[in-house]
Amino acid sequence: MASEALPSGAPAERVHGRRLLVIWAALTIISVLLIVFVAGPHMPPGNFSKEARDQRHINILLAALAMPVLFGVWTCLLYIFSTFRQGEGELQDGPPVRGHARLQVVWVVATAVIVLALGAFGTEELLGSAKGAGGGQGPDPLAVPAGQKVQVQVIGQQWAWTFRYPAYGGVETSQLALPEGQTTELHVTSLDVSHSFWAIQLGVKADAIPGSDNVAFVTPRHTGSFEIRCAELCGLWHGHMHNTGVVMTAAGFAAWIRQQQAVNAPATKTLPPYSTHYFPDPIRRAG
């Protein structure tokens, strides 16, 4: 065993400690570099919106921060397993450990600092620069991006998403289109059970709750398409509750919404006035 070749007592401890430190530091540096420069650019949800980019930055940061902890635990465990393994035939207790004030203080303080710092960082991101980071903020959002916003209502129903544009005559459509570069204010609600509106590549996820107005913000950075899924088990066809959304140029969006207004005119006439939620009206006669 490796330990037999070493001096005993305190000097041996120091040698083990130094070895552990070197292995840990090497693995940590390599893994952090791999996370930041190799995996990072491919991390979800991508770069499609400002919110998605913020989320990716946070994913990269958290993954990188986890590396020293991960390799601290793994290195110690594997080193101890291989170095201090008891030989064949010898069966004896290890030396009793009766507390180690310095280790305990370092452990508690370091853990507390990491957790509190991440808590502060997350709070600042959510309420500050990331402005809710694409998550549903409920009816009275705390973090509201500055500037003009396109308002779109997302309506969940068993089993389809529809989208209402109050600024365009309250037209309702079965496809979601957003203008590029403009902040959209999404008002997510449901007409029956709980659904969850997940625009994957846009980094938006907001629960669709009947009778509730769940506001989320998103600013698409370029044109293209994104997937929409329901992220809350909502009944028989939950798995089919998907759409493809589109981000268009401002001119493309203007043309598209005009076309939708024309195509959906017969239905628009019958829609209830725009409201932040429609539940429980109209329950009508069923149920």
Binding site: Q157, W159, A160, V193, G235, W237, R284, A286, G287
Partner: peptide, 24 residues
């Protein structure tokens, strides 16, 4: 292709959406 009814027509189920609405 799946098809469905969008009217909450399942009388006696909560909000008209249980039973026959959830059963092929």
């Amino acid at each position: 292709y799946r098809w469905q009814c969008f009217v909450p027509c399942a009388a006696s189920f909560i909000f008209g959406n249980g039973g026959p609405m959830q059963s092929p």
